[in-house]
Amino acid sequence: MTLPARAAALVPAVLLASLAGTFGTPAAHAARAAGAHALPSVNMEATVKAAQIDPRRPDSTLTPGAKAGVLLVEQALRDRRLLDARWVDGYFGSTTVTAYARYQKSLGLTGLDANGLPGRASLAKLGAGRFTVTGAIVPGGRVPVDGFVVNSRTRSMLTEAERLLGRDLKLDQGSYNPGGDPTSAGTHDGGGAIDISVKGMSSAARTAAVRALRLVGFAAWLRDPRQDDWPWHIHAVAISDPDLSGQAQHQAGDYYLGLNGLAGRGPDDGPKVTIRTWEEYRRG
């Protein structure tokens, strides 16, 4: 074979080798298959936020950033015959909360694990083959603080608030306390809810404590005897804690809507800060 002929014969071989190197490897095949079958994602942070706020809204305004994920959750609930198709609208209102609680109970979950707020495990099971879960929120195990029980997420938030404030805060009531103080109306039955003593604090110190708690992700208010039959204290709810009781969920939602978390739903009377969850605070 002449030199020019040999060169001409080599060109297709070189091209084929190049193409095979680019497209024919097992890794390349796997990447193409993954791209073809990539699942959408549900951001748990945004979805839980909507599940707290939407049931408390006076209208059907959607929670910003949550619609896509909520729709995926509602579609999955619809396909399990737990939610009527007319409620598949991206709005995580009370009907969707109830449907999600039914789904949790269908998994054999009870109590706080069936409170209607999407938890990491139940959300992953609902999304099997349909969507993946991002932005997971983990309350962590139960730990002691000042002789009371909270979860590790709440303890971390409290520790950071104390660092910002430059002083320790002492609890008057912790979480997971069903049947506790009847004036709490069930807010402490689940996780994420604490009451803090303000004994010996000046008015300015009380306000500073509420501000620090709000900065790290608590819905926090200063309570006084004029509001109800209780002593002065700070009531705080860890926003987006998946273990929140129904009543605490409502308080978190009201906080987002500029309300005081009481039954009368009056205007928020605490220091104004940018509302952020613990996860958002940690990301800066």
Rank of each mutant, 00 (worst) to 15 (best):
A121I: 11
G127Q: 03
G127D: 02
G127N: 02
F131H: 05
V133P: 01
T134H: 09
A136V: 14
P139Y: 04
P144C: 11
V145D: 07
V145M: 10
G147Y: 08
V149L: 14
V150H: 01
V150D: 00
V150R: 00
N151I: 00
S152Q: 14
S152T: 15
S152F: 08
T154F: 01
R155A: 14
S156M: 11
S156A: 15
L158K: 06
T159F: 05
E160I: 09
R163T: 15
G166V: 03
G166C: 03
R167D: 06
D168S: 14
K170D: 05
N177A: 14
N177F: 12
G179V: 04
G180H: 03
S184I: 07
S184E: 14
G186K: 03
G186A: 09
G186S: 09
T187E: 08
T187I: 12
D189S: 14
G192Q: 01
I194S: 02
I196Y: 00
I196F: 00
M201G: 08
S203K: 14
A204N: 11
A204H: 07
R206P: 05
T207E: 15
A208K: 04
A208G: 09
A208V: 03
A209K: 01
V210N: 01
R214E: 08
L215P: 02
V216L: 06
V216A: 05
V216E: 00
G217N: 03
A219W: 00
A219V: 05
A219M: 02
A220Y: 02
W221M: 13
R223F: 10
R223G: 11
D224V: 13
D229C: 08
D229S: 15
P231T: 15
P231F: 14
I234H: 03
H235K: 12
H235D: 10
V237M: 13
P242N: 11
P242C: 13
D243M: 13
S245G: 06
